[in-house]
């Protein structure tokens, strides 16, 4: 291969192919992601801030947004505690069935949200569910109510924290923890002062991803919530509702709010991650 090559300071060999590939990738991502996403921004601000002000003064939208935030925060807290604990168990402990469990943990990533909703309805449904009627007679309603929405949201985002924390736990190894133990630290002290600081960024990363996922869950929530306006209608359900009712402006504005939060999450993560790798 005797073509002319420029060797950049980074040591990358640049050939015409390099530029072709670069162009193809940029064009693909522009057409598939960048342009469509930017159009939502354009549509939202077509009439300046009126459509945004419009939805923020609509009490139903505000209620839906609050419900979404509340549900997402609860689901994220549950998944963070569960995720960190489960990661520690999977990496640091030995028990029968560990490999099976480790594989099953990823299941929620590949299950259809509609199936998630159906599964929860089959168990917690108030009329025919396996456990639903018992819980309901004890005064605890799951399906068509906030707990159901929280469960659906927690289900779909379940593996995200674990997937971030497990590799880091593997990577940091056990020596620092052993050193802390030999210096007299108890398990709790070792976790708080040694392990937690080491996995801190992985946890943050997992939490941010879970938050984005939780705020945006749609299918599973649609099945379990009953979609009752002002009670169990979340922000994503609101987008659908508005669009189907020919309120395109409202739909775009609400979608813009949601997109903004998720893009912010991604940008935060993009900023955090390289910093972490430099350490």
């Amino acid at each position: 291969m005797a073509e002319t090559r420029t060797v950049a300071r980074t040591g990358v060999r640049r050939t015409p192919t390099t530029y072709v590939l670069r162009f193809v990738v940029a064009a693909y991502l522009f057409l598939l992601v960048a342009w469509p996403v930017s159009l939502v921004v354009v549509h939202t601000f077509e009439d300046g801030f009126t459509s945004l002000e419009g939805i923020l003064s609509d009490p139903d939208v505000v209620t839906a947004l609050w419900l979404t935030v509340r549900v997402a925060v609860i689901a994220v807290v549950i998944n963070t505690v569960f995720g960190v604990g489960m990661s520690l168990l999977l990496v640091r402990q030995e028990f029968p069935g560990k490999r099976l469990l480790s594989a099953l943990i990823d299941l929620p990533l590949s299950v259809s949200p509609i199936v998630v909703g159906l599964a929860l309805v089959l168990v917690y449904g108030g009329r025919n569910g396996w456990l639903g009627p018992t819980l309901e007679s004890a005064g605890f309603r799951v399906i068509f109510s906030t707990p159901g929405i929280v469960m659906a949201t927690a289900f779909v985002a379940l593996p995200l924290v674990i997937r971030e924390v497990v590799p880091v736990l593997h990577e940091i190894g056990t020596e620092q923890e052993q050193a802390a133990r030999s210096l007299g630290a108890s398990s709790a002290q070792t976790f708080r002062r040694i392990t937690l600081p080491a996995i801190k960024w992985a946890v943050v990363y997992g939490v941010v991803l879970s938050l984005a996922r939780s705020l945006g869950e749609f299918g599973a929530v649609k099945v379990v919530s009953g979609n009752v306006l002002g009670q169990t209608r979340t922000a994503t359900l609101m987008v659908e509702e508005k669009y189907l009712n020919f309120d395109q402006q409202g739909a775009y504005a609400t979608a813009f709010l949601l997109a903004m939060v998720s893009v912010a999450c991604i940008v935060i993560v993009a900023i955090i991650r390289p910093k972490e790798e430099r350490r």
């Binding site: 992601v33 996403v37 939502v40 949200p113 991803l209 984005a212 996922r213 705020l215 945006g216 869950e217 749609f218 299918g219 922000a235 994503t236 359900l237 987008v239 659908e240 979608a255 949601l258 997109a259 998720s262 893009v263 999450c265 991604i266 993560v269 993009a270």
Partner: peptide
């Protein structure tokens, strides 16, 4: 990463 984080309805 945007498709991963963006709510599907959006």
């Amino acid at each position: 990463d945007i498709p991963f984080a963006l709510p599907t309805i959006v």
